[in-house]
Structure formats: structure tokens, C-alpha cells
């Protein structure tokens, strides 16, 4: 029997986003430790409350930012509404073409 994951929330985010968006690149950052001292985190024991996702996917093509963010929120609806669940979710959502354009710009 496999040991229980130390990062159940991260695993779940990775699974849901990968299944739904088939991303070309997908990075998850857990920033929870940076926010552990914040007042809303009093009494919260989870080490998986603040995440930053950087997602590049063709699925975003033709969608405004708002719709992209909304589709990710809907994948994690219950986890975000849950007490002690995901408290903050920063999102960077780009299409492969947008990513390439921005990378180029950053190198200039």
C-alpha cells in the first residue's frame, strides 16, 4: 500500500488541471509558508493554503483572462470554498503563443 501523500492538495490541483486543460507547461508553487502568520490562517493546520499556478495551454486560445481564471476556479470550486482549503490561488494563464511572446520580451 502506498504511503499517503504529504501534498494531497497539490496532487489534486495537478490532477484536475492536467486532465481538464492538457497543459503544455504547468508549474505549481506552494507559497503557504509565506502566509502562515496571517490572521486568517490562525488555527489552520494545512500547509497547502496558498498556491501559484503557471499554466500554458492551447485550451486558453480565444478566451479572455476572466474566462481562463474562472475555468480553473470551477475545477477547484469545493476546495476553495472549504474552511481550511485553498485560501489563495494566483494564476498565470497563457497560450503557447502568448508565452513565447512574453519570454521574448523578457529577454530583450
Amino acid at each position: 500500500m502506498a504511503a499517503a501523500s504529504n501534498t494531497p492538495m497539490e496532487d489534486l490541483i495537478r490532477r484536475r488541471v492536467t486532465e481538464a486543460l492538457n497543459p503544455k507547461t504547468f508549474e505549481i508553487y506552494n507559497d503557504s509558508h509565506k502566509h502562515a502568520h496571517h490572521a486568517p490562517m490562525q488555527g489552520v493546520t494545512s500547509k497547502e493554503t496558498h498556491f501559484r499556478l503557471v499554466i500554458t495551454s492551447d485550451a486558453f486560445e480565444g478566451q479572455p483572462l476572466r474566462a481562463r481564471h474562472q475555468s480553473i476556479y470551477s475545477l477547484l470550486k469545493d476546495e476553495m470554498a472549504m474552511e481550511g482549503g485553498i485560501h489563495a490561488l494566483q494564476l498565470k494563464t497563457r497560450t503557447p503563443a502568448e508565452e513565447e511572446k512574453q519570454e521574448k520580451k523578457n529577454q530583450e
Binding site: 481564471h69 474562472q70 476556479y73 470550486k77 476553495m80 470554498a81 490561488l89 494566483q90 494564476l91
Partner: peptide, 18 residues
């Protein structure tokens, strides 16, 4: 939209912080 802050301009929802 499950997070705060939220911005509205002329009654139209624009989005959150990101």
C-alpha cells in the same frame, strides 16, 4: 468568482488581483 479582491468598472466585473 471565489476570491477577493474583485474589481467592477461601470457595473461590469473586471476580475481579481492577477
Amino acid at each position: 468568482w471565489p476570491t477577493i479582491p474583485q474589481l467592477y468598472v461601470n457595473k461590469e466585473f473586471v476580475g481579481g488581483c492577477d
